[in-house]
Simulated scan of single mutants.
Amino acid sequence: MSIPASDADDSVSAGELSARYDTFVVDLLGSIAYGELSAFERLAIDARHSPSLGDRAVLGKMAVSEFGHYEAICARLNAMGMDPELAMAPFVRMVDSFHERTRPADWHESLMKAYVVETITEEFYAAIAEHLDDATREAIAGVHTSDEQIETLTSLLKTMLAEDPRLSSRLALWGRRMVGEALTQVQRIGAKHSFLVGLRPDATQEQAAAEVQTILSALTRNHSKRMSKLGLTA
């Protein structure tokens, strides 16, 4: 995997740009892989607290999908000649810490966390993938919760809110916390591992960060629209 020599400027060699890009892709895929593995574990655990077997099946199905995403990203890393476990290792502590900070108190918060965090992270990956090579972009495109599952989550949340209007303020607040935590997590991992430079390998960290900020602003707008569907304020 490499960056065309024409992309190099006078101060950075094509070889250095290629090395930056390769490091970016491995780090990005490593963070996605561990994020999906963690999501699988989290959803499987949350499913056990479901109020009904039908609800348990909803989160169980999502958990299975997350594990499939994990396997697909690992397959891409293997195809690149990279060890998935080594690629994931730098992100274990930060991702685990994120889930500790955002541990749901009950079933309602579990559903809201899934609704917010899954869509935010997947949209972020998709936006970054637009800048990448075809094989990596295709692999990341597969990390996508189906429209059917999102609609099911939306329907469950709407039903809960209709049955108990007192949940509205609590879940609105929880949703705001989730989106804030999710966006901060993306920025924190990117800053620590400098993989966001891979969006524009010939650019500075500051220029890449500005581009990422544009993406984050779009994610925030999309999140607000999703919350509006639930009748909640983002």
Rank of each mutant, 00 (worst) to 15 (best):
I3D: 00
A14Q: 00
A14I: 00
V25T: 07
V25S: 01
F40C: 09
E41I: 12
R42W: 02
R42E: 08
R42N: 09
A47L: 03
R48L: 13
H49P: 01
G54R: 10
R56G: 14
K61M: 06
K61I: 08
M62D: 00
M62G: 01
S65A: 15
E66G: 04
F67S: 03
A72R: 15
I73M: 08
I73Q: 02
A75M: 09
D83I: 06
A89Y: 11
F91Q: 00
F91S: 01
V92P: 00
M94Y: 08
V95R: 13
V95L: 12
R101W: 04
R103G: 01
S110V: 01
V117K: 05
T119N: 07
I120S: 06
I120A: 14
I120F: 11
E123L: 11
F124E: 02
Y125I: 13
I128K: 07
H131I: 00
D134W: 09
A141C: 04
S146Q: 11
Q149Y: 05
E151G: 15
L153Q: 02
T154A: 07
S155T: 15
S155I: 02
L157N: 01
M160T: 01
L167Y: 02
W174C: 03
A182M: 05
R188M: 11
K192N: 11
S194D: 15
V197I: 15
L199C: 07
L199Y: 00
D202R: 07
E206A: 14
Q213H: 12
L216V: 15
S217D: 10
T220Y: 13
R221V: 13
S224L: 10
T233Q: 11
